Amino acid sequence: GGTTSGLGELPSGWEQRFTPEGRAYFVDHNTRTTTWVDPRRQQ
């Protein structure tokens, strides 16, 4: 941990993952979708 950059926890059902290249993306298990956009930035 320690790399949350002050955004806090992800919404319920979300998970942060990384591509083999090390790029972060976000998985929404509620809708079984993925996005490059941090859901915390859409609030």
Results as ranks from 00 to 15, higher is better:
38 D>M: 05
5 S>N: 14
5 S>T: 12
10 L>E: 02
31 T>G: 07
8 G>S: 07
21 E>C: 06
16 Q>C: 09
1 G>T: 11
3 T>E: 13
38 D>N: 06
21 E>I: 07
28 D>C: 06
33 T>Y: 05
31 T>H: 15
23 R>V: 13
40 R>C: 07
29 H>G: 07
12 S>R: 09
3 T>H: 10
41 R>Q: 14
2 G>D: 13
30 N>T: 09
40 R>Q: 05
22 G>V: 00
32 R>Q: 12
29 H>L: 07
15 E>T: 06
38 D>W: 01
16 Q>D: 03
16 Q>A: 08
25 Y>N: 03
13 G>H: 08
28 D>W: 00
40 R>S: 06
26 F>P: 01
33 T>V: 09
27 V>E: 05
33 T>K: 07
11 P>A: 02
24 A>I: 14
39 P>T: 01
32 R>A: 07
18 F>H: 14
15 E>W: 00
42 Q>M: 11
5 S>C: 13
1 G>Q: 14
27 V>L: 13
24 A>P: 09
25 Y>S: 01
9 E>K: 10
31 T>K: 08
14 W>T: 04
4 T>S: 13
20 P>N: 15
32 R>S: 09
2 G>L: 13
37 V>Y: 15
4 T>P: 06
4 T>G: 11
43 Q>C: 03
32 R>C: 08
8 G>P: 06
3 T>A: 11
34 T>R: 03
28 D>M: 01
11 P>H: 02
36 W>A: 05
32 R>E: 08
42 Q>S: 13
5 S>F: 05
29 H>Q: 07
10 L>P: 02
5 S>P: 11
42 Q>H: 15
43 Q>H: 06
21 E>R: 06
34 T>G: 01
35 T>V: 01
14 W>H: 03
1 G>K: 15
41 R>Y: 11
38 D>C: 07
30 N>F: 05
10 L>D: 04
38 D>P: 03
17 R>A: 12
22 G>P: 01
15 E>Q: 11
8 G>A: 11
12 S>E: 11
25 Y>R: 00
36 W>K: 04
27 V>T: 07
1 G>C: 15
32 R>D: 04
2 G>C: 12
16 Q>R: 10
23 R>S: 15
4 T>K: 14
37 V>A: 08
41 R>E: 15
17 R>C: 14
6 G>H: 11
21 E>S: 08
41 R>G: 13
14 W>N: 02
8 G>Y: 07
42 Q>C: 14
6 G>L: 09
40 R>W: 03
34 T>D: 01
1 G>N: 15
17 R>T: 09
25 Y>K: 02
7 L>M: 14
14 W>L: 03
25 Y>E: 02
12 S>Q: 09
42 Q>P: 14
37 V>D: 09
17 R>E: 12
23 R>I: 14
7 L>D: 13
26 F>I: 01
22 G>H: 07
36 W>L: 07
20 P>V: 11
12 S>A: 10
30 N>Y: 07
17 R>G: 08
9 E>L: 04
6 G>Q: 15
26 F>R: 00
7 L>P: 10
42 Q>L: 13
24 A>H: 10
25 Y>H: 02
36 W>V: 04
42 Q>E: 13
19 T>G: 06
16 Q>I: 10
2 G>R: 10
32 R>V: 04
27 V>G: 00
27 V>S: 03
36 W>F: 15
29 H>P: 02
42 Q>A: 14
28 D>Q: 02
12 S>M: 10
3 T>R: 10
16 Q>F: 06
11 P>D: 03
